Computed example of a mutant assay.
Amino acid sequence: MSGALVLNATYEPLCVVPLRRAIVLVLAEKAVVVESAGAVLHSARLAIEAPTVVRLSRFVRVPYRSRVPLTRRAVMHRDGLRCAYCQRRADTIDHVVPRSRGGKHEWVNVVAACATCNHRKADRLLAELGWSLPFTPKEPAGYVGFAVGYVREPAWEPYLDAWGNRDAWSDGDRVAS
């Protein structure tokens, strides 16, 4: 278990926090456990179930973020840690239209790539190499950025689905070209 989903008092998903932080929120009575993993954590005087979903006791007003920041981690997560060109494990990012040829550093021009393909492509266009992308890169919806870097737990699905986050990072976003 990598973390716990934090819900607002209205059951709106807010963020994912490490397990330790979730337990501190529960012990400080700032949150209540909605779902737990079944594992029990013990201290000298206390035993508490490891939470997978917690709900804040009070409503927190959060400014709406309409865009997910473009980071290496976010691109790797969007592309499932797979190279856009050969489908092997990705370890870097690549600009589809190289920046040296006027390509922008934006979601629709950046894909995950393995070092071999990135080096082979260099500053050339895909058409020059005879390559094509198996999907059209696009910007993910703003409300899914909080889960970047965490493995989605099955217990989170009902709460994410209720707010329209279903498959926001999955292969369902990959549109065949």
Results as ranks from 00 to 15, higher is better:
1 M>K: 00
1 M>T: 13
2 S>Y: 11
4 A>Y: 01
5 L>Y: 05
6 V>A: 06
6 V>C: 07
8 N>V: 01
9 A>C: 07
9 A>Y: 01
9 A>F: 03
10 T>I: 00
10 T>K: 12
11 Y>R: 11
14 L>Q: 13
16 V>W: 08
16 V>L: 08
16 V>Y: 06
17 V>F: 03
17 V>S: 04
18 P>T: 06
19 L>R: 11
20 R>D: 14
20 R>Q: 12
24 V>T: 12
24 V>A: 14
25 L>A: 08
26 V>F: 03
27 L>T: 12
30 K>F: 08
31 A>S: 09
32 V>S: 13
34 V>C: 10
35 E>F: 01
35 E>A: 15
36 S>K: 10
36 S>R: 09
36 S>D: 15
38 G>S: 06
38 G>Y: 07
40 V>D: 00
40 V>N: 03
41 L>R: 15
41 L>K: 14
43 S>V: 02
44 A>I: 10
45 R>G: 12
47 A>Y: 00
48 I>K: 05
48 I>F: 00
52 T>Q: 09
53 V>T: 03
58 R>P: 00
58 R>Q: 14
58 R>I: 02
59 F>I: 01
59 F>S: 14
61 R>I: 02
63 P>N: 04
65 R>C: 02
66 S>M: 02
66 S>P: 00
67 R>L: 04
69 P>H: 02
69 P>S: 12
70 L>W: 05
70 L>I: 08
71 T>V: 08
71 T>Q: 06
72 R>S: 10
73 R>M: 04
73 R>D: 14
74 A>T: 05
74 A>C: 03
77 H>D: 05
78 R>H: 07
78 R>M: 04
79 D>V: 04
79 D>W: 05
82 R>T: 10
82 R>E: 12
83 C>R: 03
84 A>L: 02
84 A>W: 01
84 A>I: 03
84 A>Y: 00
86 C>L: 11
86 C>P: 10
88 R>S: 14
88 R>K: 14
89 R>E: 10
92 T>H: 01
97 V>M: 04
98 P>W: 10
99 R>L: 10
100 S>A: 13
103 G>F: 03
104 K>R: 14
104 K>F: 00
107 W>Y: 09
111 V>G: 09
111 V>C: 07
111 V>K: 07
114 C>M: 09
116 T>E: 04
116 T>W: 05
119 H>R: 15
120 R>Q: 14
121 K>M: 10
127 A>C: 06
127 A>L: 09
128 E>F: 05
129 L>P: 11
131 W>V: 09
132 S>T: 14
132 S>M: 09
132 S>R: 15
133 L>W: 03
136 T>D: 07
137 P>G: 05
137 P>E: 02
138 K>F: 02
140 P>K: 12
141 A>W: 03
142 G>M: 06
143 Y>I: 05
144 V>F: 02
145 G>A: 10
146 F>C: 06
148 V>K: 08
148 V>F: 08
150 Y>D: 01
152 R>N: 02
153 E>G: 06
155 A>Q: 15
155 A>E: 14
155 A>D: 12
157 E>N: 11
157 E>I: 11
157 E>L: 15
158 P>F: 07
160 L>C: 06
160 L>G: 03
161 D>S: 14
162 A>E: 05
163 W>G: 01
164 G>R: 12
165 N>A: 13
166 R>A: 14
168 A>N: 07
171 D>Q: 11
172 G>R: 15
172 G>N: 04
173 D>G: 02
174 R>P: 00
175 V>M: 11
176 A>Y: 05
177 S>Y: 00
177 S>I: 08
